[in-house]
Computed example of a mutant assay.
Amino acid sequence: MLNKTMNWQLIEDELDEYVWDKATAQFWLDTRVPVSNDLLDWRKLSDMEKEVVKKAVGGLALLDTLQSEEGLYALKKNARTLKERAVLSNFTFMESIHAKTYGTILISLNTFKDIEEIYTWMNNDRRMQFKAKKINEFYQNGTPMQVKVASVFLEGILYYSNFFIPLWYRGQNKLANLAELIKLVIRDESVHGTYLGYKFRQDFNELSITEQENFTNWMYSFLEELLDNEFAYTEEVYSEIGLVEDIKTFVKYNANKSLQNMGFDIYFKDASANDVNPIVMNGISIETANHDFFSQVGAGYLMGEAEEMLNDDYIF
């Protein structure tokens, strides 16, 4: 087989280089944000609240590990262009950064015993393992389009039940550094989801009408299966804190966004931005802090220059 040199002057798909520039411009590291500065807030939380936050962070660690080790590898095998492979390599590294970030959060706020307990939980909880198993089944054995759908659903939907809690505390001016890291992760996932949704649509548009209908039926069946588990997981983990319905709405809202990234209509009519808990929306919108005044990096690492991708970013 002929090995090809990547020619960055050759334009196979304009979005590849655009996303490469955007993704590399918003590079960041977890070590730039001093999560230990949240210890005062952390100690004021009840044991029940701490447990909820630990499970949220631990669940994200499990899913991001899956994405970095299996998901991006499966996506790269079926890349349409060489530059797409380069973009996905960037995504792979950043997913590893995300997974490490959750470890940094846990280490900064907890004892060794606490950390061991939360890792044991996330490696054995049936709802968490269901998510990972269902997604990984398609990473290992799915078609290229199924792999893309699994990836978009993982990053764009299944993360968000766990993203909710840090944003909720941030909206109340608590755990600011922890939430800043989560917001940096969300900013990356926005780019990943938009890009992979666009790549999915290229594949989808090449199918016949009948093939599109069959695939769409599978996709919505898969979505419902994932959401049934997701809502059961939400009830198990978040009932004590009284936020189950708010989290379900947040998950539905992001499910709509993920489907739109792939070119489909919204699925949940009762989950617009106006339906999402305003405290969480406030947590998302609070301006990012900057902890390193000399090098101009930190939690606000190039946030101004590398904003979230919007639907209009597709249009050239």
Rank of each mutant, 00 (worst) to 15 (best):
G71F: 11
S285V: 07
L82E: 05
D270N: 01
M219P: 05
I286G: 06
F268E: 03
S151Y: 08
Q26L: 14
K199A: 04
S272A: 06
F204M: 12
L60C: 09
E69H: 14
N277L: 08
M262K: 05
E287R: 14
T194F: 14
D16Q: 00
T104Y: 14
L243C: 11
E70S: 10
A86H: 06
V149G: 09
D38W: 07
W20F: 11
R32G: 02
S89H: 02
E84S: 08
T143A: 14
D313A: 10
M219E: 08
I115R: 01
E235S: 15
T210I: 13
G103W: 08
A132M: 13
F222V: 05
E236D: 12
E189V: 05
A79M: 01
T249I: 12
S258G: 00
V87C: 07
W121P: 02
Y195V: 04
L72Y: 12
E287T: 13
E17M: 14
F200E: 07
E236H: 08
T24M: 09
E213W: 10
G58D: 00
V52L: 02
D21M: 12
K134Q: 14
S285N: 15
G103K: 11
F138L: 07
E206C: 09
Y195G: 00
I279H: 13
D16H: 02
W42L: 03
V147D: 03
M128K: 00
T31F: 13
Y220S: 06
R170Q: 04
L60Y: 01
N37M: 08
V185I: 14
T92S: 13
L196V: 10
V251Y: 02
T194M: 15
P278N: 07
M48V: 10
G283V: 03
S295T: 15
N110P: 01
A273S: 13
D47A: 07
D64L: 02
A306K: 02
F112K: 15
V152Q: 04
G58P: 03
M122A: 10
E51V: 05
I209Q: 08
K199E: 09
Q202R: 11
K50I: 01
L175F: 02
Y253T: 04
I241C: 00
L158C: 01
N261G: 01
L66K: 06
V57G: 04
I247K: 04
K54G: 04
V152Y: 07
K22F: 06
F222M: 10
V152K: 05
W42T: 03
A61N: 08
V280W: 08
V185N: 11
T81E: 07
L227P: 09
T288Q: 07
E236W: 07
V185H: 13
